[in-house]
Amino acid sequence: MINLSVLVADDNPIIRKIYQKRLQETNHDVTIVNDGLQAIHEIEKRHFDVVLTDLVMPGVDGLGLLQSIKDKDPSTEVIVITGKSSIDTAVKAIKKGAIDYLEKPINFDELFLRLNKIEEMKSIIKNAEDLRDAMEFTESSAAQTIQQLEESLIKAQQKQSSINSLAKDNSLSDSEKIVQIINIISNTGS
């Protein structure tokens, strides 16, 4: 579960207000700006998981913003917002790397569904990365464990064979044998 950082760019103040109100309902960290140029300033400052942009804006339009975002950080997902008349441009945006498009007027349930999908996708990618890295550490830890156990096994076998040969040594008295065997057993460092 990840809270997304979301940047919204729209030149219509009424629509910005609606975004502000509806996106407050979510757990996402939301920044709203007036146009493409301001959006570019924001993405220069920090990373966003998702950018929602109107296609038609004065100055830098949605396609121009998409280009800047993908140049800077391809992992930022872009959803373009389009009127009925500019579906062709929306398709062009998808070809250039936008993840999806939504038609005006925005159906917020649909938007939340898209954001949930992105959140789930990011979470799966993160899980896969963690799984791969954890596997690598677990494997090297297991190898070390086996190596350590092998070493202590060898030491134990060496002790056992020294004790066996001492026990069979007829030149020693029983009490001498016991003293030497105790020495071998208590010598844990070797």
Partner: peptide
């Protein structure tokens, strides 16, 4: 502890 771990040594 984890199944690949050991406290030996």
């Amino acid at each position: 502890i984890g199944s690949t771990e050991s406290l030996t040594g």
